[in-house]
Amino acid sequence: MIQHNAMPRRTVIVTLIVGLLLTIMPLPESLDPFRPDWLALLVIFWAMQLPRTWSIGTAWIIGLILDVSQGTLLGQHSLAFCVIVFITVRFHLLMRVFPLPQLTATVFGLLAVYQFLLFWTNGVAGTHAASTVYWGPVITGALIWPLLVMILSGVRYQDRSGN
């Protein structure tokens, strides 16, 4: 099982910075609506792996940083992040034993919840955007999830063997 006392803090921070870089990296106009929510995927992954040390407060702060870098309403991504982290932490034991296809489907659901919260807050605040802006990242995010799990599990395994 996973060691809970050894929090690979450095690994987590590095992956989050890489995630933020990928989020603000310029993409061609046509691909832009399909950019996965890298930070949302990472936040779900780490919440699943480290449900004890990974608090929803951390996710909230990451959301705030994302809000500033994206220029969205302060608190918008924070809200979405802490909700999906809460769900993930609640069901992390279940999600860990899910086979990959089922886990991917769950992640799809979580990403949909995440995008719905953004959509909802955007609607309340009066920001309009095309529907691909919301659906594109959910689909590409779910497609990229298995790959991300493979890479991050490798990183984590190395991290543990290094300890």
Partner: peptide
């Protein structure tokens, strides 16, 4: 901590804080 009611309370507090911020 993943099952404690404190987690739910913290979530509610953070949601409230987010809404106030927004």
């Amino acid at each position: 901590p993943t099952r404690s009611p404190a987690l739910g309370l913290r979530l509610l507090a953070l949601i409230f804080l987010s809404i106030v911020l927004m």
